[in-house]
Amino acid sequence: MTLSNLIRKMQSEQKLGEEQAGLLLDLQKKRIFPIHRELRFFLYAGILLVVAGTGLTIKQYFDDLGDVAIISALTLCFVSAFAYCFIKGHPYDSEEVPSPHLFFDYLLFFGCTFFAMDIAYMEMRFSVLGDAWKSYLLLSAVLFFFLSYRFDNRLVLSMALSTLAAWFGFTLSEFQWFLFSEHYRLYAMAYGTLVFFGGFIFYRLEIKKHFFEIYLNFALHFLCIALITGVGKYLIFSIYFPALLAACAALAFYATRVSKFSYLLYAIIYGYIGVSIVVVDFLHRSTLFTLIYFILSSLLVIRGIYKMSRKFREEQ
């Protein structure tokens, strides 16, 4: 049996309409060849290259170009982009709104990155906000949140969430592997909780419900990583261990309820790491018992997932 034969068979049995079968056959035989994804990819890659090139040019030549030229060029770019989006964009709706055209989402993203560069450059050169310079991150995050909701743009929402994370102190420039100090942990937990409840409130209010997944992804990774580092430091005798178990259980429950198994993957991996840290410490790092623990626990997890996967298949 081939796909073409099946389509023809279903058409003759009148399970597929003539026009529908024609379209499916055209797609299968590649008489219709959609290149939408390729065009989106190259548009996005182009925008990222322009942003990276602009950043590099400013970094290398800001003395030659002068502040006025740089600030006015960046301002002109983001104002034009925003103006275009407000003129051509569809009116606001709390449901999902399709983009007017292919370039629209990326143009808004382009405007946001240029806004961020402009404001960062001004702050770096003139120190307008002085010691409170990080407030520009909060200002940017607020603007990005507004724009992402106004134009239903998930790229800008991701930018807004990461800018908010930067305001909480999580920036690439200050990132240090394996060093997760106490205040970072608390900030990460505060950020994760805030983002989760923010997303949840919008979800309950039925405002752009489809954005909830993005909020949840940001929240769960920040929260779980912070909790795991807490478990690593304080082991079982702290709030971190039960909090991690509770978070993973809640995540697994949500994943099975809405059949989004990526969350189950995260819940099991984060939960297993947390439990393993505690168990290995409990075993006083004895090689024999640690190895036996890993063998038995992984067999247990495999058995559990196997049963779960069978259950879901039967339900489907």
């Binding site: 990276a52 993203f109 961020a116 960062a120 790229l155 991701s158 930018m159 800018t163 690439l172």
Partner: peptide, 14 residues
């Protein structure tokens, strides 16, 4: 989305 989320971090580092 991940690339978009990393963009402000890169701008900040620059």
């Amino acid at each position: 989305d991940i690339a978009a989320a990393l963009t402000p971090g890169v701008v900040d580092a620059m």
